[in-house]
Write a protein that binds this DNA or RNA. Structure first.
Lengths: 203, 203
DNA sequence: TCTTTTTCATACCGATCGATACTAAATTGC
DNA sequence: GCAATTTAGTATCGATCGGTATGAAAAAGA
C-alpha cells in the first residue's frame, strides 16, 4: 500500500551513473544528481540510501550494462582474441558518449579526500577482480598451448589492464576513438606467440 | 622593510604538492594544506594567491623537481633508450613515496566538479606537451634510422604516454615497483626495430 | 624611539556540502 | 469514505568549503 513512485528507479540510477562518470564520486553533488535524475533529494535518499550507496549501485550497473564485453571476451578461443576484443570495445566505450568520455571505473574515484576512500578502494577492488579474471584466462591459454610456457600471466594481465587504464585517461583528455584503436593495435603488436597480419610485425 | 616571513615558501610549496599528489586538487582542503605546510590560511593566500594558483605552482614544481627525468631521457641516443629511461624512472617515482603513490599529473585532477575544469585542462595540456616532445623525438629517430620509416611517431608517443598513465593508476592502486617494471618490460618488448636481449623476445 | 610596512593568527564570511524534518498529496486495505 | 502508509517537495539542518577582515607582533627606516 501507500503512494507509488513517480520515477523509474533504474532510469534515475542510469542518470546518476552518467553524472558520476563525468565528474567522479566527489565531483558529483546532489544538485547535479537531482538535476540529472529529475528526482528531488529525499527521493534519491529513500530509493538508494546515501551518496556512497548510490555510487555503488551505479558501479554495479556500469559493470553489467557497459562492461559486459569484458566477461564475454574471456570466452573467445585465443588470448589474443580476448585482448583484441577487450581493447576494441574499450576504445569504443571510452568515446561512445562525448559528454562522458573515459571509464567510470577510473574517473569514479582515483584520488580524493579521506571521505572518498571507501569508494576509491571499491573501484580498486573491482579493477583487481577484472585483472584476476584476465590472469586466469591467460593461465588457461598457457595450458592450451595458446601462450608459451614462458609467458607470465600475471604480468600480461597487469599490462593489459594498465593499457586500458591509460586509455581511459587519454579518452578523458579528448583522444579520438581512432587514436585509441591505433594505440591498442601497437599494444597488441607484440603479443606473445603471435604475428599481427596487418602490420607485418614483429621484426 | 616590514616583517619577514617565518616560513620557507619553497618548503611550504613542496608540502602542498604532496597533499595534492595524494588527494588531488579538489580532494585537498585548506585544512589539509595548512596542516601539511604548517602555514596558516592567510599565509598561503598571501604567498600563493588562491587554491588554483597554489596548485599550478605545485604543478610547475612537480615537473621541474620530479619529472626532470623526462626531458633528460630525450637526450639519450636511441628511441628505445629514451622510452626505457622514462619507463624505469616513472616506475620508480610512482612507488618512491608510499604515502603518495602514482603521479600528480594524473591524480591531480582527472575528473571533478565544474570548478576544477581549468585545473583539469591544465594537466591535460601539460601531458599533451610531454607527448609532443616524445613524438618529436621519435621523428628524429626516424630520420636517424633508429626507427623504421613505417613507424608512426604520434601513435608511438601516445602509446608510451598511455602506458605511463596506466602505470600511475596501478601505482595508486598499490602496485609494487617490481610489478610496474615488469609491465614496462613487456610494454617495451615489442619496440619497433629492436629485440630485447634479456627476454629473447620477440618470437 | 617612533612611524611605517609586512606577516602572523584568530575569528569569521557567504556558499555549498551531504543529509533530513515535515507537510501535503496520493494510493491501498478495510 | 476512512484510516493507514508511502512518496513528493519545500525548507532546512550542522559541517565544511574556499576565501578574508582585523588586530597584534615583528622588522626596517628615520
Amino acid at each position: 500500500m501507500g503512494r507509488q513512485r513517480e520515477f523509474d528507479v533504474e532510469q534515475a540510477l542510469d542518470a546518476a551513473l552518467c553524472v558520476f562518470w563525468r565528474k567522479g564520486y566527489e565531483g558529483a553533488s546532489y544538485t547535479d544528481l537531482t538535476q540529472a535524475t529529475g528526482v528531488e533529494r529525499p527521493g534519491l535518499y529513500s530509493a538508494f540510501g546515501n551518496k556512497e550507496a548510490l555510487f555503488r549501485r551505479a558501479m554495479e550497473r556500469y559493470f553489467t550494462h557497459y562492461l559486459d564485453y569484458f566477461p564475454a571476451a574471456l570466452e573467445l578461443p585465443t588470448s589474443r582474441e580476448v585482448v583484441e576484443h577487450i581493447f576494441h570495445h574499450a576504445a569504443e566505450l571510452h568515446t561512445r558518449h562525448p559528454d562522458r568520455p573515459g571509464c567510470l571505473g577510473i574517473h569514479g574515484a582515483l584520488a580524493g579526500s579521506d571521505d572518498a576512500e571507501p569508494v576509491r578502494q571499491a573501484l580498486v577492488d573491482a579493477r583487481a577482480k577484472g585483472e584476476v579474471m584476465l590472469c586466469d584466462r591467460f593461465e588457461r591459454a598457457k595450458q592450451e598451448g595458446d601462450l608459451p610456457p614462458s609467458a607470465n600471466s600475471a604480468v600480461l594481465a597487469a599490462y593489459v589492464m594498465t593499457v586500458l587504464h591509460g586509455m581511459a585517461v587519454q579518452a578523458k583528455a579528448g583522444f579520438s576513438r581512432d587514436m585509441l584503436e591505433a594505440i591498442t593495435e601497437h599494444a597488441l603488436s607484440t603479443w606473445p606467440g603471435n604475428v599481427s597480419p596487418s602490420t607485418g610485425n614483429p621484426f
